[in-house]
């Protein structure tokens, strides 16, 4: 598969603080790749180094294709109308705005509203539309659904799926594990300036998800158990309850969520 992004030994410091200690990863054509990390892990710095918005100290960033960028914190002059911004940026990129994309993002509904009158969701959609104006091969999305309501998130997720279906390569930084699990092919978790994990959501579960919480309810009360060997533990517990003559009313077996696994890795546990 064609590599669209290749990062090698990327390092970046701000004065005395080392933010990136040598990142290595690649993103393939048509892949949705998530960059995860707790606040301050270096997600935005990594994205901005890749986007060419920030200088890095050493290493290499190879980007193969035209890029579109939706920034985490973005703004426009407060009196510019949504459609005026679309026209300005498309003229500057020597392209014509794709009306189908504009309609799909619902820009028509607030085309004549000034920027300061837009809701957070409308601003996010407008900035995504601006990022897509140049028909990019690679799209960088920095926390694209932050501050959006449920409807706004669903609409944006739908748009990301359509972009993937169109063969676009998408790199997104996010905090939202449910979003990452449902949209992304692969995940990289940043921790203390390094990549602590890279792989699929399933691989992440496999790597740290062998631990189970068991809850057994009987007429006498509720008992909690923990196990790293679920099959053997369950058989033993059931045998014990049968031997004691206790009637089990309910059993729950919980595997740690992806979010718990992410937190473990992100915190270096």
């Amino acid at each position: 598969m064609k590599k669209r992004i290749q990062i090698h030994d990327l390092k970046k410091s701000y004065q005395d603080r080392v933010v990136l200690k040598g990142l290595d990863f690649c993103v393939y054509q048509g892949e949705v790749f998530a960059l995860l990390g707790i606040n301050g892990a270096g997600k935005t710095t990594t994205l901005e180094c890749m986007e060419g918005l920030r200088d890095y100290d050493s290493g290499s960033v190879d980007i193969d294709g035209r890029i579109g960028i939706q920034l985490q914190s973005a703004s426009l002059p407060e009196h510019i109308k949504a459609m005026e911004a679309v026209v300005l940026f498309s003229k500057w990129n020597h392209t014509k705005a794709d009306q189908a994309m504009i309609s799909a993002l619902g820009i028509d509904a607030f085309a004549d509203k000034q920027y300061y009158q837009l809701s957070t969701g409308q601003k996010r959609r407008l900035h995504l539309a601006l990022a897509l104006l140049s028909s990019p091969d690679i799209i960088f999305l920095d926390e694209p659904t932050a501050g959006l309501d449920v409807e706004g998130r669903a609409a944006l997720h739908e748009q990301i799926r359509k972009l993937k279906a169109a063969g676009k390569t998408i790199l997104l930084a996010s905090h939202d594990m449910a979003e990452v699990e449902s949209l992304c092919d692969r995940i990289a978790i940043l921790s203390e300036g390094r990549i602590a994990f890279i792989g699929t959501a399933w691989e992440l579960n496999e790597r740290v998800g062998k631990h189970y919480d068991i809850v057994i309810r009987t007429e006498e009360g509720t008992q909690n158990y923990e196990s790293d060997n679920i099959g053997e533990t369950l058989l033993n517990l059931l045998a014990q309850y049968k031997e004691a003559g206790t009637v089990i009313t309910d059993i729950q077996v919980n595997r740690g969520s992806l979010e718990q696994h992410f937190m473990k890795i992100a915190k270096g546990e």
Partner: peptide, 17 residues
Amino acid sequence: VEIYGSDIKKVYKANGV
């Protein structure tokens, strides 16, 4: 100041302006 003291300048840069 509205342009250069805010994220507008980043949006300009990111969109090739």
